[in-house]
Amino acid sequence: MRNKVLFFTNICLLFCLNVSIQAQDLLDKLEQEYPDTPQYQLATFKASRISIGHSVETRKKGVLELQAFTRYWNIPNSSGQSFVADKMGARIGVEYGISDKLTFGGGWSTLDGIFDSFLKYKLIRQRNDGKGAPVSLSLFQNIAYRSERNPPLIDINRFDNFQDQLSFTTQLLLARKFTPQFSAQISPTYIHRNSSAFTDDPNNQFAIGVGGRYKIGGHVSIVSEYYYLINPLESITTYDAFALGVNWELSDVMLQFKLTNTWFFSEEAFITQTPNNFNFNDGNLTFGFNAIFVLHLNQKDKINTD
């Protein structure tokens, strides 16, 4: 008897299953036909910088970025006659996508005469199909050469020979796109300075950067970044770098506007040697403007290659 009941329920189940297979329409059928290729999250951040620091993003293969970063600030109690701002700093740089995962870049900053170059490698890509990695991870390594003494500020490193003026920054850039609008990044940073002018100062410094963006439109996002320095310099008082800004993207151009407290562009300089805090006093409040122009070089014609 019990067997019979089981038998009939089985039959019923089978028929139900069969009916449901036939009842499903063609679109549902296509849903099941999608190949199981991994789907990666696109554009956790839009540019290679969130605002002042590097983002997890690398350039695609064959993409050349031309960059002009500028900062403007006033000298406290200045009686000068400068136009708009008393002082400015700039960094001219390029970035090139060697492959979709590896980006090489370099630049030169005016204020401190730092020549910097870096490699950034995208190790893990966040997937948006619920499988695989929930975060993206990029490795960043830079080498910076400080070519000029910086008269208004105390020199932190020695200038005796070439090696003395070098510093190295290593970062793990860990980011997650939580929603289509909101992405956040945490970047543990290790900075090694080859020489110290003062014996009190640590040669190896550690910092943690946090940054985020919130898209307020298809092309505009609000960004913020903060670098917490774990073991600051002893010889001078330094403050943690902070930035609050707006990124605006137009076709091949990316414009980044920001309010910040740091005048420097290279990682070791702005993370460890920012001499002023973030507030609205003259000399502290710095307006920053990054212009990034993207050129597509050497990209094979992906449309007509099949």
Binding site: L26, Q39, L42, A43, H296, K302, I303
Partner: peptide, 25 residues
Amino acid sequence: EIAVSMLMNAFVFKKSLMHEHFNES
């Protein structure tokens, strides 16, 4: 009857930035 379905991010463009803008913006 006919049905068609496609993934928008499977479109390839001449410039990689266009692909990003198309999908993102």
